[in-house]
Design a protein around this nucleic acid. Structure first.
Lengths: 155, 155
DNA sequence: TATTGTTATACTCTATAACTATA
DNA sequence: TATAGTTATAGAGTATAACAATA
């Protein structure tokens, strides 16, 4: 078989051909954030999704699992093990609901509220540190534009 | 067991307690983009990662698999099936490299260049349509800030 | 010895269907 | 009949180790 290729020296950024795409930039940026966030939460034995679930339960006690799954945009079935884990650590309880015994009202325990508070402080510190390379205005703009997009995008 | 919870009516946005976090906003926005992008590429039987790989190979022919894996930030081992798939469709070839017979120089075929071109046009149209709710300035700012972050963030 | 591509594998994530108990 | 929580499972995606060929 004949050779017909020269291998170029490694270029600085071979993925520059994808730099036109906002989605690609979002994905690469998010993967950096996620890796750092995972390290931050490991201290509390929390994954990002467990932290999110716990935070919402603390902020809005009494939600059912279906409501929480909708809020987090995950499947009800996949929420079960997350709730199991939080409940197993006594951070939340599945409280019975008198009006409808099929449902569980998700309630934070005192320990859950405390962990949510310290983990949230760490998460805020993680973002402060990670996004230190951006100006306050850039961070605010990034946040604002992302939320506007999510709110206004026509699906 | 005693009931001690009232189930609130479904709130508009139970995840507002996470809205302080840029990472959360990025994740939610990206999932919207990814879902729409997947639909767009399905027309060409491409996944996002196959599109990315093909685009880079077309834009920078001759890269080795290790170089491409680094560019896409995926494991070499996981790139194999992606390259298999593209090569199986005759969109690229693994060309031998005279100087180092361990390596494969990834080269696009004519069909690969053509598919990359039309898929890229569709991808651009997908982003134009999806981000239509943002102004040109907002899109440019979003892109600029994300790229600045990725470039300047201290890991 | 080290590197490239590859295989095998395990672990997580995600999506779907079906079950139960309730309504 | 329909819904809430659950179980089981299958498919992606991702990460690690080890091997053969080559350097």
């Amino acid at each position: 078989m004949e050779d017909f290729a020269q291998v170029p020296e490694q270029e600085a950024e071979p993925d520059r051909h994808l730099s036109t795409f906002i989605g690609y930039a979002m994905k690469r940026a998010l993967s950096i954030v996620q890796a750092d966030f995972a390290k931050t939460l490991a201290e509390y034995d929390l994954r990002a999704v467990s932290f999110s679930a716990l935070s919402i339960i603390v902020g809005e006690p009494g939600l059912t699992q279906t409501q929480l799954a909708d809020a987090l945009q995950i499947e009800r079935s996949n929420l079960v093990t997350i709730i199991d884990e939080l409940a197993g650590r006594n951070l939340i309880v599945r409280a019975p609901v008198a009006q409808d015994r099929r449902r569980h009202a998700l309630m934070p325990t005192t320990a859950g509220k405390q962990l949510a508070a310290v983990a949230k402080a760490s998460a805020i510190e993680h973002e402060r540190r990670l996004f230190a390379c951006l100006t306050d205005e850039e961070r605010a703009e990034l946040q604002r534009i992302l939320q506007k997009f999510r709110k206004d995008v026509a699906l």
